[in-house]
Design a protein around this nucleic acid. Structure first.
Lengths: 147, 147
DNA sequence: CTTCAATTGTTGAATATTCAATATTTTCAC
DNA sequence: GTGAAAATATTGAATATTCAACAATTGAAG
């Protein structure tokens, strides 16, 4: 039976370490797939979130895509240069900026999504449907607990 | 029943995203604890791995602590300045450098480990023993599958 | 209404990470 | 044994991220 890490358990038994390791590995796989389109994982996230067609403020977006505000600002600057997204000042609250995805961004988002889905299918294939579903359930629950 | 992400599933259903989110959250909690000693999470990992008293090469260590080689080199430089670890040229293979933890490093490692264990206990408390154990098992299995 | 605090987003400087190139040593084919 | 290729660690330049300060706007107390 696996026990919680006591005095001198190896680092590989710590939840924080296992999460970092698994995240690193899966992220690297995804990165490799997305590199076909020359796009970092974070931009896939941004495009995917914006693909609901709604305008999202920078703060909202930063939370959703797991980036700090200044990092997001600079990444969005690049994506604006690439004409993937654009800024609109929120008329209801002029402190805010609403982000929208362009047609070009939508097209890219579809291609990226197909790559991401294919990665996930590949994982399900080798790791198993049951394990994948259960792992997702546990992760969601952990995230819910932590907040 | 949770399904694999199809055409337009939200990003929150992707395994890669859930892992990133969970990792971010747990890592942030751990970071907060360790900040009591003014030490980043990576240094905890390094000290913990080296605490077996054996000498570890930089390559070995980089794999173990999930850092790229150049990043590790520079972090080790800082830790050497802080007298937490020291370098010894491997006599069997002079390309290699063996890293060892100093007494000061060992003492810090014990304090850090106690903080890390307390974090994990806190997670088990709110998240549950069964869920934690099961999540760890699934993560280990995923990591094994991915390699 | 006015003022002060809070919210939102961006900027620039400081810091950290990554990529490519390098130096050194070992391994292996011949 | 020699020379070419591989392995190991580090360096410096390019890039990215973070922190603290800022500007603009809104909210709220008086």
């Amino acid at each position: 039976m696996a026990k919680p890490p006591k005095e001198n358990s190896p680092i590989t038994e710590h939840l924080a370490y296992l999460l970092a390791q698994a995240n690193r590995e899966i992220n690297r796989q995804l990165e490799t797939r997305l590199s076909k389109e020359g796009v970092p994982v974070e931009q896939w996230r941004i495009l995917k979130v914006l693909s609901d067609g709604e305008g999202h403020s920078m703060g909202e977006l930063a939370d959703a895509v797991l980036l700090n505000h200044p990092t997001l600002t600079k990444m969005i600057d690049r994506m604006v240069s690439d004409a993937l997204v654009y800024r609109v000042q929120d008329p209801k609250d002029r402190r805010k900026v609403l982000m929208f995805v362009s047609d070009r961004g939508k097209a890219l988002s579809r291609r990226l999504n197909s790559l991401a889905v294919s990665q996930e299918e590949h994982i399900v294939e080798s790791y198993g449907d049951k394990s994948t579903t259960e792992l997702k359930r546990l992760l969601e629950s952990l995230i819910g607990t932590a907040n």
